[in-house]
Amino acid sequence: MDVTVSVENGVAIIAMEGHLDALSAPHAKEAFREYGTGEYHAVVDLGKVSFIDSSGLASLISGLKTFRAQGKQFRLAAVQPNVRQVLTLTMLDRAFDITPDVRSAVASVDA
């Protein structure tokens, strides 16, 4: 899994690519910890994540809690159908702010 981060107007856009599973989830958590220190909101670009399992979900929940604890927003963007299916099955689609694409996610954070 590749994780790349860019910063734009106080928003860390954390883009992931590949499979978010037990092997790669620690890399995601590390990125959330690094940018979840209170300086930035987060938009997690899942547009290129084609698989997620419970370990991947745990990393996203960890990120949500990390940013919330700092009073910052944590949004998911461009969630692909297979990943959406898992969020829906676990009802975590109700816990996350999910935006269709990265641009509107960043814009909604600014608002």
Binding site: L57, A58, T90, M91
Partner: peptide, 17 residues
């Protein structure tokens, strides 16, 4: 069983899935 949503548990989803 599915963990309680309100607790935002970071585990316990595997068996359910």
């Amino acid at each position: 069983a599915l963990p309680e949503l309100v607790k935002l548990a970071e585990g316990g989803y595997g068996s359910y899935l």
